[in-house]
């Protein structure tokens, strides 16, 4: 059984990746489907990154918008002011996000801020940055700043089609999943899971919880910051409203619905919820205003009621059952 599982896992993953790679072939040049797929991948990356601090370390972080905005502003500003390629800009954006995460995370973890208090502090961070960038006229300010327009420029990461963004986002998602998988298997992962279960108990056993949480926070902030850089290039402008509270909450929802700590959970949740939301918006939004939000909220409530542990375990059960049947035959 163990052997057959491993034998099936790897080809299955390669098959899924192959399908993802080939998806644009199916939709050809339908830009709507492409942007939808890219958006799903984008939320998949954000939720997978969140799953490190939220799922493994059990910290209800609501600051994804803050790191996304920092990445977007670093990348955008470097490109607009000094013509620095976003390929470099997004990495620097990720580093700025880490710097900021450490600056805020250190005192928070040092003084033992956790649970709802950590959630509230991180949510406040997004709004603080939004207002700060609105006031900071040299970089932000109330007026949108536009990235130079190019029909196709790899250097400027600006394209008239979403196809390249789809593949970049897919690559980033694979990277995020590998990082998550690697952390889960590593010592850091076990420490994080231990402190996520019971922080005091983990401390008694000698886990340096503060250091572990800071490490998790940094990795999460870096991935979200890099995504922010791509986000800015995809939309072609930067604005302080990129520091978005609702988006931060949505990322956390995807992480929770996907199943806390399960590597592929948030991606599944992103595929399911983002496409359901968009399908409902596109088909119901024009008929009766707000109806799609009611349906979407109902889906969320049903998941919370019947699958409080998220969608990940459900898929795992189904997969195990399938494997068992295959093994029997």
């Amino acid at each position: 059984m163990r052997r057959s599982r491993k034998d099936i896992n790897r080809p299955l993953l390669i098959l899924l990746l192959g399908i993802a790679v080939l998806l644009p072939l199916v939709v050809r040049s339908n830009q709507y489907t492409l942007v939808l797929l890219t958006t799903i991948l984008l939320y998949g990356v954000l939720a997978t990154a969140w799953n490190i601090i939220g799922g493994l370390a059990g910290q209800l972080d609501l600051a994804a918008g803050a790191y996304l905005g920092l990445g977007a502003f670093t990348t955008g500003t470097l490109l607009i002011r000094w013509n620095v390629s976003p390929w470099l800009g997004m990495v620097l954006g990720g580093l700025v996000a880490i710097g900021f995460a450490l600056l805020v995370g250190y005192p928070l973890f040092r003084f033992g801020v956790k649970e709802v208090w950590y959630a509230l502090s991180s949510a406040a961070l997004v709004e603080v940055l939004r207002v700060a960038f609105l006031i900071w006229n040299q970089v932000g300010g109330p007026v949108e700043r536009y990235l130079p327009y190019h029909e196709w420029s790899l250097y400027h990461l600006r394209f008239a089609t979403y196809l390249p963004f789809f593949y970049i986002m897919l690559g980033l998602l694979v990277l995020a999943l590998l990082i998550h998988h690697w952390i889960r298997q590593s010592k850091l992962g076990y420490y994080l899971m231990a402190l996520g279960e019971n922080e005091e108990a983990a401390e008694v056993l000698g886990v340096n919880t503060q250091k572990c949480k800071l490490q998790a926070l940094s990795i999460y902030a870096f991935l979200v910051g890099v995504t922010g850089g791509i986000y800015a290039c995809m939309y072609g402008f930067i604005h302080p409203n990129f520091f978005s509270g609702p988006m931060s909450t949505e990322v956390a929802i995807l992480g929770i619905v996907g199943g806390m700590g399960i590597t592929y959970g948030p991606v599944m949740a992103a595929i399911l919820l983002v496409s359901v939301r968009e399908f409902l918006r596109a088909n119901l939004g024009g008929q009766l205003e707000g109806l799609y939000l009611v349906v979407y909220a109902t889906v969320l409530i049903l998941i919370a009621l019947f699958r409080p542990q998220g969608l990940g375990p459900l898929l795992r059960q189904a997969y195990d059952r399938l494997l068992a049947r295959v093994a029997k035959e």
Partner: peptide, 11 residues
């Protein structure tokens, strides 16, 4: 939001 507006236009 800007991304939902863009999706709306594509759609």
């Amino acid at each position: 939001t800007a991304d939902s507006a863009r999706l709306g236009a594509e759609s």
